[in-house]
Computed example of a mutant assay.
Amino acid sequence: MLRSLQLESGYRIILALRLSSLLIFFSSVLSARGYPSRAHIFIYAVCSQEKYQPNSPFEGNLNSFLSSVVSSSSDITYNSFAVGNGSLTPQEGSVYGLYQCRGDLHPIDCSKCVGRLVNQIGLVCPYALGASLQLEGCLVRYEHAGDFLGKLDTSLRYKKCSKAATSDVEFFHRRDDVLADLQTANGFRVSSSGIVEGFAQCLGDLSVSDCSSCIADAVGKLKSLCGSAAAADLFLGQCYARYWASGYYHESVNLSIPLVSFKY
């Protein structure tokens, strides 16, 4: 009887360990495939070569802008700001900027992403008069002039292409279906066809027609620059598009432009 109880107890322990292992396995799979868990991954930075002086009016307004960005991101996923553009403030001290989170992020995850990004701006672009930083889940951009707001910008900021897919006609048919669907986006759009998934997003300051033009440009560049890649990401100045075949999203190889300073 005692031996029977010991065996039963042993089986229970083994079963519990197996169940625990399965839970850990599935949790890791969900975490690996869950975009919010990847929101903090750094994508690119663009820093102006022009610098501002420490303790200048611009620095004070920039700090106010960054504080407003963090505060606002806990409520909405996009917002734009103009700080210090009143008649009593010298024009050179004005700061214009915006932030945006990926459309599927919960406000809590959006706020975490933006907060992390804001903490990096001073390190990545120290004293830069203009900067644009993109993480996997969010973007923050600021300038000393506001003429960039609402203005279509399709300049290439970043690309990433995986190794080539097999010559599977079905894959390319599915990929083209996804990319065609993404071009109908007005803001943020997710699409899937068979084993291929993708999503695209425009900045919130773009009109519907400019959003369509931007994503169409991104899709065209994806095809021309990444060819037969099984997974590809492409970020332009005001939009991005990406697709991947099942199993390739986290295996794509970085073939991006370097993270260096540029002059706007």
Rank of each mutant, 00 (worst) to 15 (best):
M1R: 11
E8L: 13
A218H: 12
E251T: 07
G84W: 06
G97W: 01
R174L: 02
V118T: 05
L5F: 12
Y35A: 10
T89D: 13
Y96K: 04
S213T: 15
G220M: 13
V118D: 07
H250T: 06
H144W: 08
L22H: 12
L135H: 08
S28Q: 09
L156C: 04
E136N: 14
R116I: 02
R189G: 00
L152Y: 02
W244T: 11
Q100W: 08
Y96S: 14
L179N: 02
F172N: 01
P36G: 10
A200K: 10
V178K: 03
R38A: 13
P107V: 02
L139P: 00
F148Q: 05
H40R: 08
G86R: 04
M1Q: 09
H250C: 00
R38G: 07
L135K: 06
I195T: 05
G220V: 07
D217F: 10
Q238T: 08
S111A: 13
Y243W: 02
S68A: 12
A131I: 05
F235E: 14
P90S: 11
F172R: 03
P36Q: 09
S224K: 07
E8H: 10
S9R: 11
V190Y: 06
S48N: 12
L62S: 10
L66Y: 08
T184D: 06
L123G: 07
H144G: 12
V169Y: 02
V29K: 11
Q91Y: 00
K51F: 04
G34F: 14
L152G: 00
G115M: 14
S193W: 05
S155C: 04
L7E: 04
L156N: 05
L22K: 15
G194L: 09
Q120V: 03
I76Y: 08
Y44P: 12
D181I: 01
V118N: 01
N61Y: 05
Q134V: 01
S209V: 14
S191W: 01
G60D: 05
L225Y: 15
G97E: 00
A45I: 01
I24L: 13
Q238M: 14
H250R: 15
G60K: 12
S212I: 10
E143W: 07
L255Q: 09
G150I: 01
I13M: 13
R141Y: 07
S111N: 06
L156M: 02
G227P: 13
G130D: 10
R38F: 15
D176F: 03
F65S: 13
G60A: 08
A216K: 14
Y11K: 15
S167R: 06
D210F: 11
M1Y: 11
R12D: 14
S71T: 11
S21Q: 12
R12I: 08
F65E: 11
